[in-house]
């Protein structure tokens, strides 16, 4: 019986084989590594030391939370995420309003603003490290020098600030892109009505535009958080987590534990922490998306 000769309900059943492959691979993709991470996190398991085996219980977690590096990495992660969020969402909101306004060449200006988002992370990191922030040859140093200041060795003196600048530059376009879409969906008549009611630009922004953008801002914050929690390449190619542990985030710590020290158990425990952190945000994000889904 071919699908077309079947009544509606049976052909609907035929939707399942279409869906199954995607569901299956995603299920595997989620369950298997997750279960393995959980399992490893309870194991004594170091790739360099095959004699070290067996059940570790919560030892890995114990070592993790008693390791000052772990707490440093959590603080670093928090500093990085919060700083970048404040910068990108704050500037992003203002820029979204700016680029919602018509001016000559706006479309081209808009393309320039969102361009950094399409630069691969390793490129933006090295570009900033060498061409902009290099103490001798970087433009920042040259400009500082020209004005008689001592050039700043960014990655030695303010490594976290340097990373924050790079990551903010990468993610500001994302915030602008999303928030601009949100601003543009605002009914122009609403603004005009507010203006007839005597609202100036600031009143309009506070009472009309911001409330309208609230939802989009929430979404930007959540999505950025999920990505920022796992920022890796920028740190990998610029500071390698240093100097010391100044720029070691949770993601980088896990990487270092796993692939530099081959401590599978300890790294897995860190991985579990990362998953839990991301899931706290993800729950809110999924709920927010669900509200918009009319399926």
């Amino acid at each position: 019986m071919s699908a077309s000769t079947m009544p509606a309900s049976r052909s609907r059943g035929a939707g399942l084989p279409f869906l199954a492959p995607s569901v299956l691979v995603l299920l595997l993709w989620m369950i298997v590594p997750l279960a393995m991470t959980l399992w490893f996190s309870t194991q004594r398991y170091n790739l360099l030391d095959p004699t070290q085996t067996g059940f570790a219980g919560i030892d890995n977690y114990y070592y993790l939370v008693t390791d000052p590096d772990f707490w440093t990495s959590l603080v670093n992660t928090l500093v990085l995420v919060v700083s970048v969020l404040v910068i990108t969402v704050g500037l992003g909101t203002l820029l979204a309003v700016l680029y919602d306004t018509a001016f000559p060449g706006r479309n081209i200006a808009r393309l320039l603003v969102i361009a950094p988002f399409f630069v691969m992370p390793t490129v933006s990191a090295l570009m900033w490290k060498n061409l902009m922030m290099h103490p001798i040859y970087g433009l920042f140093g040259v400009v500082a020098h020209a004005f008689g200041f001592a050039p700043i060795d960014w990655f030695a003196q303010y490594p976290m600030a340097a990373i924050v600048i790079i990551v903010s530059w990468e993610w500001l376009p994302f915030a602008v892109l999303i928030l601009l879409t949100a601003v543009q969906s605002l009914d122009g008549e609403q603004k005009e009505a507010a203006r007839l009611d005597g609202a100036g630009p600031i009143a309009q922004f506070v009472y009309i535009i911001l409330p309208h953008m609230r939802r989009a801002i929430t979404v930007v914050i959540m999505i950025e958080t999920i990505f920022l929690l796992t920022i890796f390449a920028e740190i990998f190619v610029t500071t390698s987590g240093g100097p010391g542990t100044a720029t070691t985030t949770l993601a980088y710590l896990i990487y270092a534990r796993a692939l530099l020290q081959y401590d599978v158990g300890g790294a897995s425990a860190g991985g579990v922490v990362a998953i839990v952190l991301a899931n706290i945000v993800a729950i809110f994000l999924v709920r927010s998306i669900a509200r918009n889904l009319e399926a």
């Binding site: 699908a3 077309s4 000769t5 079947m6 009544p7 509606a8 309900s9 052909s11």
Partner: peptide, 25 residues
């Protein structure tokens, strides 16, 4: 037309029951 299922009763075209036949048939 056959685009929705028939939950009960009978549909016949030229005297032939069509409940289980798809739209094209």
């Amino acid at each position: 037309a056959g685009l929705e299922d028939i939950s009960g009763g009978e549909l016949a075209i030229d005297g032939v029951r069509m409940n289980e036949t798809g739209p094209a048939g």
